[in-house]
Amino acid sequence: MKKIIFKEATKAVIAGDKEKAEEIATQAIEGGIPAGELLSDGFVPGITKIGALFEDEKIFLPELVMAADAMKTAADICNQSIPTAEVTNKGTVILGTVKGDIHDIGKSIVASFLSANGFKVFDLGRDVSVETFIDKAQENNADIIATSALLTTTMSAQRNLEDQLKEAGLKDKYKTIVGGAPVNQRWADQIGADAYAEDAASAAQKIAEILSV
């Protein structure tokens, strides 16, 4: 019985069916299935599969977004029934679009996909100063600071973040990941960011790699 429910849960996320995912999560938990197990063996394989399908260019962006949405709904229900101390958190991510830049569509997709993948995400929105990134990271004991920039003129804020982290002696405390249209691996290497991600799926993968989770 459990196996069938887990399979259904996986299917619901892959189909991007938010209502179905919600229904399965609610009923399964009422039926006494441990929420942690439901997540790890039911819903998570769904979102993992979606990430792989997107990477392989088998599915389109709206399908990725819908799956992330379904996953998030299911995960919220599961997490509510788990005592706070036991909620699995793969890592805390501070995320935002850099100062001077208001392009946030890609960043928001990354935010929802990361939280669907079990990361605790603080989305600071757009036009975020380097100081705010660092303050919020300190405040929330973050593991990762993720920055997005769409313009060549705002990319430099990603470098400023690296410089200020180094200056404040915090470079070892937080890992950084960069993204955005003009950004690439070479830029990440040049400024000393820990990783570069091309899209939402690879952001989740790269962050998991950095944190070895």
Binding site: E57, L61, P62, D199, A200
Partner: peptide, 8 residues
């Protein structure tokens, strides 16, 4: 228009 496969 937007390329929904590559997100660009």
């Amino acid at each position: 228009t937007f390329d929904m496969r590559h997100g660009t």
